[in-house]
Design a protein around this nucleic acid. Sequence first.
DNA 1: TTTCAATAAAATATCGATTTTTTATATATA
DNA 2: TATATATAAAAAATCGATATTTTATTGAAA
Lengths: 232, 232
Amino acid sequence: MNIKTLSPSPEASTQDASATQRAYLAIRRMIVVGELPPGEKLKIDSLRSMLDTGASPIREALSLLTSDQLVERIDQRGFRTAATSLENFEEILALRCSLEDMALRQSIANASEQWEESLVLSHHRMVRESRDNIERFEERHKAFHMALLDNCGSSILLRFCSQLYDLNIRYRYLAGKSLNYQKKRDVSKEHEDILNAAIERNADLASERLLNHYRQTGAFLTGLFSTASEQR
Amino acid sequence: MNIKTLSPSPEASTQDASATQRAYLAIRRMIVVGELPPGEKLKIDSLRSMLDTGASPIREALSLLTSDQLVERIDQRGFRTAATSLENFEEILALRCSLEDMALRQSIANASEQWEESLVLSHHRMVRESRDNIERFEERHKAFHMALLDNCGSSILLRFCSQLYDLNIRYRYLAGKSLNYQKKRDVSKEHEDILNAAIERNADLASERLLNHYRQTGAFLTGLFSTASEQR
DNA sequence: TTTCAATAAAATATCGATTTTTTATATATA
DNA sequence: TATATATAAAAAATCGATATTTTATTGAAA
């Protein structure tokens, strides 16, 4: 089988795409990573000069981000990055668990050899990337998790899951350095276990492992978040 | 209790909103209602003159509609209305059933007197509107269905449900006149039964009735759609 | 004929300037 | 001192023109 057809390489972005597309990806990255903090006013002009482009691409990009729920738009009053809160985080986590459970089970129900192989491949790519470049790793990490769901047969559901993933990962970045904790937990092992359960087509086990994986990180972040809020 | 605080009146739109907002609502309406058929190229210039506004508001509106999945954007190649297909319809229906089931159960779990009252009110408004102006009725119809879910406590889930509702209703409009069938089925009765089960806080019954309500219309539309496709 | 390349037309995407709206500041009034 | 009102500054929203890209057309070569 041709690897190329199995899954497109993660590159191929930002090259000669439209200014709107570039702006979209750049701003999105900045929000997810936390370079643009939650609740921050997004001034067209600042972004315009920052990304060295016109107002139209910026505005279009922000409009797109609005539906990703990473940006809030107030008519006539501009844009700002979405606020964060403990409640919001918990809402995202809970919904994510429900939807990913659903998608994973459907994926496994539709399991095929090709899907299996794409899982192994995306897992491998994630493992190989590890450690040095965190953003790059997160990209592969997402790719692996999405690959688990990719076979569910509903592109809309996938889209929702992808959105929720990004909303969630934003909180991980916000927690930032504290995440050294992650090393105590053996996350790699958890990934392997999920992968194996999926390949064995054991939906209950795979789902259980996946949700535990999320909930553990979730509980930790929740703790962080509430202590952080109390400090103010 | 003050009615005003219970639920905002459905009006208050399109007045002195921004050109973008007006364009968004107008184009969205045209797509949902079918005035802009599925798969149709959306030329900026046509829309510009049609809505008597500049290119920027149009483009922003289309960007927003992209994430509603009512419009597809092909980078550098413009926008078109989302295509329709039997598979797409069934995907929407299935996902809608899953998510609304989830939301309705949570709504009922969180049931409160105020929620109960908002249900009764939105139901009443729908019943009063009936028959003459179809678009107006559909607005109320959506309001009622969303009111059922509104108490679920997750604004993101609500948003997803709302999106799916619009995607679905589009198919109802496409089916068009054939919907006289709806009169044979006693839809009003179905609505009442759902309302009553919700008010009695019987989650299983309410959910069962709600999903049946959707699936019956769904099965009918599926039939229509497949015969229509065969004719080509 | 079919295929290809060059050109012309159309449409998208982008820019820079202008208008409108909001927000901040200063001034007057109760 | 607090409240309201007028003014100035800043920012958002919009427009019209230009640049870029895609799509359609034409004519030549295989």
